Amino acid sequence: MAAISEVLHYREDRIALLVYLGLLMTEAHAQLSQLNGQLHHTDLHDRFLTWARAREPAGRVTMFHVNHQPGAQIHHTDPFAVPTSDRSPVRRFRGRLAAPVTLWTASGPAGLTVSSTLVAEGEPDRLLGLIDAESDLWAAVEEAGRFAVAPLGPPHRQLADRFAGLFPSPGGLFATGDWTDTPYGPVPADAGGWAGCRLDSAREYGWSLLVEATVEQVELGDDIAPLLHHRGRYRELG
């Protein structure tokens, strides 16, 4: 079954959630069919998809929604929520720190959505970030010794989910959208700019990998509003 932390990212897009769950259901069906030989499709449908819908008294199926948008059918509680008493205080504190959403890419190509990027001015200028040590991005960065970082804006919500592994990407992560090739990695053509970085070092830091790099090149585009990550959701200024 899908991890709760992954499903939470779809609270603002039920259609994307059902597409994601449908892909997981298909994969599960193929794997279980190899093991058992026979499997009732309706059982998987109930396990993967039925819970994502809510039934009205008249029997009409409607989407579950937790964002209180006009016209949406609202439950009084979030079925995905972990009880407050079971949540890590540090994780809850971190969630209250709004962070810019960025895309890191490297030749290969490979990419990863990162919401823990920090730039330190100096001689030389430096960039730091926390990434997944088991990601394809880190393997590509380690091999190339360089990578690109681009800040994302509100129009990049789906792109951010795609590179976070939370949205289907038929044909590959870079199959859709317009991209600009750079010596450090491809970047979205409509990003507000990008920084080319040379890898200096990396070490385990908590459950992540702390990457330290030198900023070698900066290209600035149009000044776009930032996409922020706060308390498990994307946010916009204002």
Rank of each mutant, 00 (worst) to 15 (best):
M63S: 14
P79I: 12
H156I: 06
Y234V: 11
T113H: 00
L112E: 07
R91M: 13
T77D: 15
L228P: 07
R233M: 00
V66N: 07
A106H: 09
R94E: 11
E134G: 13
Y10I: 05
H68S: 15
F48H: 00
P155F: 01
F80Y: 06
Y20I: 14
A175D: 04
L35C: 02
L137C: 14
D78G: 09
T26C: 09
L173M: 09
M1E: 15
Q73I: 11
T180G: 11
N36A: 15
L199E: 15
Q217I: 03
P226S: 05
A28T: 06
A175E: 01
P109H: 08
A144W: 02
G232P: 02
E134H: 12
F64K: 12
G221Q: 03
A225W: 14
L220G: 08
V82E: 12
V66T: 13
R47M: 09
H229F: 08
E27C: 05
A30W: 08
V114F: 05
F174T: 14
G37E: 03
H156Q: 13
A191F: 02
L18Q: 04
L103Y: 00
V119G: 05
V149C: 12
R162M: 13
R96L: 13
L8H: 08
L220Q: 13
Q73V: 06
E56M: 14
L21M: 07
V90Q: 07
E236R: 08
T214D: 02
G111V: 00
L32W: 05
A120F: 02
V114T: 05
G145C: 04
Q38H: 09
R53G: 10
V101T: 05
R60K: 13
L49N: 02
L21V: 07
A225I: 07
R146P: 00
C197K: 08
V211I: 12
L130Y: 03
S208L: 11
L152P: 06
R94L: 09
Q38R: 00
L97G: 05
L128I: 08
L227W: 04
V19C: 10
N36F: 12
